[in-house]
Design a protein around this nucleic acid. Sequence first.
DNA 1: TATGAATGAGGGTTCATTCAT
DNA 2: CATGAATGAACCCTCATTCAT
Lengths: 207, 207, 207, 207
Amino acid sequence: MGKADLNKKLKMENLLNASFELFTSQGINKTTIQDIVNKAEVAKGTFYLYFKDKYDIRNRLIAHKSSQLFMQAYNAVNESGITEFEDRIIFIMNHVLDELAANKGLLSFIYKDLSWAVFKRALTNPLNDDDVDFNEVYENMIAESGISLKDPEVMLFMIIELVGSTGYSSIMFSDPVSLDELKPYLERTVRGIIRSHTEKPKKDNEE
Amino acid sequence: MGKADLNKKLKMENLLNASFELFTSQGINKTTIQDIVNKAEVAKGTFYLYFKDKYDIRNRLIAHKSSQLFMQAYNAVNESGITEFEDRIIFIMNHVLDELAANKGLLSFIYKDLSWAVFKRALTNPLNDDDVDFNEVYENMIAESGISLKDPEVMLFMIIELVGSTGYSSIMFSDPVSLDELKPYLERTVRGIIRSHTEKPKKDNEE
Amino acid sequence: MGKADLNKKLKMENLLNASFELFTSQGINKTTIQDIVNKAEVAKGTFYLYFKDKYDIRNRLIAHKSSQLFMQAYNAVNESGITEFEDRIIFIMNHVLDELAANKGLLSFIYKDLSWAVFKRALTNPLNDDDVDFNEVYENMIAESGISLKDPEVMLFMIIELVGSTGYSSIMFSDPVSLDELKPYLERTVRGIIRSHTEKPKKDNEE
Amino acid sequence: MGKADLNKKLKMENLLNASFELFTSQGINKTTIQDIVNKAEVAKGTFYLYFKDKYDIRNRLIAHKSSQLFMQAYNAVNESGITEFEDRIIFIMNHVLDELAANKGLLSFIYKDLSWAVFKRALTNPLNDDDVDFNEVYENMIAESGISLKDPEVMLFMIIELVGSTGYSSIMFSDPVSLDELKPYLERTVRGIIRSHTEKPKKDNEE
DNA sequence: TATGAATGAGGGTTCATTCAT
DNA sequence: CATGAATGAACCCTCATTCAT
C-alpha cells in the first residue's frame, strides 16, 4: 500500500471515527457535515470524496459497530466454555445488553431507524475486511450444538426484536423496570421461544 | 359553544388532520410547517397558537391515534364474546396488527421514535376528551377475567415491545416473514409470556 | 367622572405603567405589544384603542418621566433655600444626575433616541394634566434670580447636552470616570458656560 | 495574494460598502441582511462567512468611519500650519463638524447607539490596516504642543460629548440653533474646558 | 368599548452541496 | 486528490396589526 493509499485510508478512518463520536454523543440530526470534517480535520469537500451523505456514513457505521458488538459476544461465549445452545444464546444476550448499557450512545445510535432489515444487512454484509458474516456464525452455532431448529431465522428475529426493544427501554429509561430486573423475565421468555422452535426427538411433555 | 369557539376548534382539527396526513404519507422530517398550514388552509402564525412545534403536534397525534387503535380493538373483543384472558389478549393483538397492516402510514408514524415511555404516556394520559386511559381498561380486563398476574405491567411491556417490533418488520418489509406467517409464532410466544406471569391458584410446581 | 371613564383611565394607566416597567427593564426593542398587554392585563386590541404603536407610548412616557425628573429637582432646589442662579442650576444638575444614577433603567430609557428636539418637546408639551411646562419654570428661575442672560435657550441646550451625554457614560459604564469623579469637572464647566452667557451690568471687559 | 484571496477581500468590501450605504440612507433597523447581500451581489450565506450579524458589521463600520473622520481632520490641521494646541483642537472640531454636516447619513450612523466606550474602542482599536490609533495621535498632539494637561482623557471626553451631542442636534434639526450659530458658543466653551485643564507654569491669576 | 384569534409578510439563520483553484 | 469559499434554497418563528364578535 503506497503512501497515498495510506493517507487516503487514514482520512476515511478519521471521518468514520469523528462521525461515530458525534453521532453517539449528540445524535445524527444535530451533527452537521461541518462538525464531522472539523473533528476529522479534513476539508469539507473531502467528505464527499468518500461518502454520499450523512446517512451513508451512518449506515456503514451501524453495520460495523453491530458486527463488532455481536462478534465480541460470540468470542466471549466461546471462551466461557458454555456448550448448551440455549445457554449460549442467553450468554450472548446478556453480553450484548451489558455492553449497550455501558455505552448508551452506541445503543441510541444503532437503535434509531433500526429495522430488522437494516440490521440483518448490517450483520450479513460485512463492509470492512475485518467484519464477519454473522449469519454464518449463527448457523455454525446451531450446527455445533447438534440441535434441530424449526425456522431458525424467525426465531432469531423474534429474540432480537424482543431483547432489542425491551432492552432499549430498560437501559435508556429504566422503564418499566431496570435492566437487572428485566433480565430474568427476558431469559425465561427467550428460553421459551427457543424451546418452541426446537424439534425434540423425544416425547414433548412441556408447555 | 359560541361561534368563535367552534371556529377555533375547527382550525385545530384542520391542523391535526393535515399534519396526520402529511406525517403518514411523507414522514415528519420531510413535512414542514408550511406544508401543514397550506393543507389546513390556515395562516402560519395560527399553527403557533395551538402547537409549540412539529413535535408537539406529533406527540398529541401519537397519543390520540394509539388510544383510538387500542380502544377499537378493545371494543371489538367485547363484541366478540370471548372471555378467556389469554384469548382476549390474542384477539386484541391480531386486531391491532390487522389495523396497522391496513394502514402502514399509521404504523410508520406511531412506531418512529416510539419508546415504551412515550407509548405509556400516550395510553394513560388521554388528551382529547374522547380518549380513554388504557391502563384502566387493562386493569379491568385482568380483574374481570378472574386471574391473578405477577407483574402485569412488565408482562404488557414485553408483549407490546415484541408484537410491535416484529409486527413492524413483517408489515413494512415482510422480512423475515409476512404478517400472516408471523402470527402463529407470535401467538405461541405471547401465550407463553402470559402463562409465565400467571399465578396458578393450585399447586404451583412451575418456575 | 363616570364609572366607564374611570375604567378607561385605569386601563390607560395600566398600559403606561406596564410599558414603562418593561421598557426600562428590558429595552423597547425587546418589548412586544403582547408583553405590554399581558402585564397590563388588557386585551391586545385595547392597546390600539389608546396608542398608535410602541413608539407612541414611548414618547408619551419620555415626556412624562422627564418632566417628573426635572420638577422633582426644581422642587428640591426651592426647598433648599439656594438663591444664586448658578448654584441653583448646579443643584438641579446634581439632583438629576443622582436620580438617574439610582435608576439606570430610567436613564437608559430616556436617553435612547433622545435628541434635544424630542427632549424639548417633552418638557414643553405636557401631556398629562399633572405635567408642567418646564420652559416656563426655567424662565421664572431666570427672572427671579435677577440676572440677565444672553441666549438662555442655547445655554440650557449646551448644559443639558453636556451633562446628559457625559453623565450617561459615567453612570452606565464609569467610563472614563465615575459619576463622582465627573461631577467636579462638570460643575466647573457648567459654571463657565453660565458665566459666558451672563450679561454683566457693569463695564464688560471680558471676551 | 492569490486570486482566491483577492476575491475574498473583494466580497468583504462589497458587503461593507453595501451596508454603509444602506445604514446611512435608511437606518440600520430598516436594513435587512437581504438588502445588504442584494446590493453587494453576494449570496446570503456569504454574509455569515464574514460577519456575525448586522450589528457586527455596524461596529466595524463605526470604527472604520470614525477613524477616517478624525484622521482627515488631523491631516488637515497639520497642513494648515496651526501650532497652538487650543487652536488645533478648535480646527479639528470645526473640520469634523463640517464633514458631518456635509454627510448627515454618516452623522446619524455613527451617532446612534454611540457611547464613549464604543467610540473610544473605535478610535483606539483600528480594525483595518489603514486605520490608526487615535489615542497615540492625541498624545502626540499634546506632547508636540509643549503644554501640560491635567486629566487629558477626561478633557477629551467632555469635548467630544459636548461637541458631538450639540452638533448632532444642530446639524440634524437646526435646533435650537443652526450649526453656524452654534460654532461660536462651542468654540468659547471648548476653549474654556481646555484652559481649565491646562496646568499653567506661571502665576495663575485666572479663575 | 373591549376582546383575542387570526393573519402572513418578513425576519435571521443554517447547512448540504458544488467547483474553481 | 484535496481544499474551503461560495452558494441559495429552505427552514422556523415572531409579532404588529386587524376585525368579527
